[in-house]
Every structure is written in C-alpha cells, then in structure tokens.
Design a protein around this nucleic acid. Structure first.
Lengths: 147, 147
DNA sequence: CACGCTTTATTGATATATCAAAGAAATCAC
DNA sequence: GTGATTTCTTTGATATATCAATAAAGCGTG
C-alpha cells in the first residue's frame, strides 16, 4: 500500500503544517510582548469586526465549539480586553464590546499577524495559494457529508 | 487590503479543514465502537511500527510535545493497550509494546482510517494532492526558520 | 396564561497542547 | 571516581476541544 507510512498521509502533513504555523505565530506574538493567545485574538477580532454578535455566531465564524467560545470570552473579560453588557430586550445574551485595552491589542497584533502570514507563505505564489484553498474547501465538504 | 477578512486568511482555512477532518474521523471511529482517540491511535500506531522507540522519538514523529506523548502513553497503558517494561541497560526509558488488545485495536482501526482518508480526499486527484503536500512542506520550512 | 419547544449560554468531565520546572539516569571531563 | 552536563521523562499550570448535561430566557399555541 503506497500510503501506509504515517509520513505519507496527507492529513498528517496538514496537521503538522498548521501546528508549525501556530507555534511560529504564537512565538512571534509573545516575543512582541503581547499577552494573548492566537485563539483569544481570533475571538477578540471577530467581536471587533461585528457588532452585536452572539457567542454562537462567533463559534460558527471561527470554527469553534460554543463551549470553547464561552471560556475564551470569560478569559478575555478577565483580562480586561472585553466588556459584556446584558442585552436590554433579550436576556439570553450579552452585548460584547472591546475595551480600549482590547482595541490596543487589536492594533498591536494586526501588523504582526500580517507579517507572520507573509513569512509563512514565502515562496508560495498566488496560483498555488488558490489551489490550496480549493482543495481545503473540497476536504471540508467531503467531511461534512452525512452519508 | 485584500486579505483582511478572517475567511480570506489561508491559515484559517487550513485550520478549519483539519478540524473538520478530525471531527469526521473521530466520529467514524466512535461509530464503529472503537474507544480510542485519533491522537492515541497515532501514538499507538507509531509504537506498533517501530520497536524500541523512545517517547521523544514518538513525539518527533507525530509532531507532538513530549509532555503530551507522556500523557497519551499513560492513558494507553491504563486502557490496557500498551505495556511498558523497564529497559535493562538504560534506566531512563521503558520499552513499549502493544498488548494483544492493542494489536486488535490497530487492526480494527486500519480499514476505517483508510476509508476516512479516501472519503475526505474524494474528488482530489493525485496531482493536486502532490501540490498540497509541496505547499505544506514549504510552510513548515518557512515557520521553522530561525530568522 | 400555562405548557412545551427552541434558542442561547454555561458547566463538568476528559483529552490534548504548551511552557516551565523538576527528577532521574547516563555520560563526559578531569 | 566525583562533579558537571546531557538525555529522557514526568509533573504542574493554564488554554483549548469535545461531548453531555443543565440553566435560563424567549416564543408559540392552545
């Protein structure tokens, strides 16, 4: 069988590559003295970009379980990057808004995030990036199928 | 900026795709009544394939932190899939060997793993798979660079 | 309005990831 | 051989992922 060794399994490469990128990106963030995790930043950024978003919408947007989003939001609140105010007419959820500290973090992270992506994609041209995107989309569809 | 939205960030797609695959594969394993996680299986399989492997070598092979490997091995031992015997001449490590229950799990998982990969890669031809592999390799190298 | 149903969020238990610290055994230098 | 260093492993603390169970608010229908 051609693909019996672990190293030949494509999903193993996929997993390794994304882990390598996460370690790389997190190290760059920490080196810049920014005390936030990649995942916390993802959630914070979603809230920054979309007013009146619910936790479930965040979860769907960043491909995270609702339970994880709940805990990340609690951490962000504890860190003072985020404020929650009860929604006036629907008691099930709270409105989320960045504090000024939260906005500072977003501004500080943005250039680092862009530099990280640029460095990680160094030498990979637009055509290959587009192909990668297409293949990943196909994989997601294949894994979503209910049959 | 063209890539400002989260959904346009390639690494976000990468992460989503691998998460989708992991959920899919884990669900198939559980549905088959096999009580093991993907990561436990990865480690168990490495030990199955390589006699006299150390935890550090396993970690390097499956791209996991040594601490994670330690804990996964402890779980596999507790589940009775793995046995450790102290190494006769080097007291720092133990020899790892699958129990018969462990071997049964490997046999049971193998066809499911192959079917999962086949299904997840449905419609993606060998050329695109090779390109994906090459791009992932490049990303890993870019993220490993010390500069 | 009272009931059941849906939506939104939280919590608990367990597994994994990461970093840092510590333990223990082997090896090297002298 | 003893002390310092290196190698292999473990443990602790914290963050995230997943599944299951629960809580709490809104909504619809009678």
């Amino acid at each position: 069988m051609a693909d019996s060794r672990l190293q030949d399994v494509l999903f193993y490469s996929l997993e390794s590559a994304i882990k390598a990128y996460r370690r790389f990106a997190q190290a760059r963030l920490s080196a810049a003295g920014i005390d936030i995790t990649i995942d916390q930043w993802l959630v914070l950024n979603m809230i920054h970009e979309s007013a009146d978003i619910t936790l479930q919408q965040i979860g769907a947007a960043v491909f995270k379980d609702f339970a994880s989003v709940t805990r990340i939001v609690q951490l962000l609140e504890r860190k003072g990057l985020l404020r929650r105010t009860p929604h006036p007419s629907d008691g099930r959820w709270s409105q989320l808004a960045l504090t000024s500290a939260g906005k500072s973090v977003i501004s500080a992270v943005e250039p680092i995030a862009q530099a990280n992506r640029r460095k990680a994609l160094d030498g990979i041209d637009a055509r290959h990036q587009a192909q990668l995107r297409a293949v990943l989309k196909q994989i997601m569809e294949n894994c979503d199928a209910r049959d």
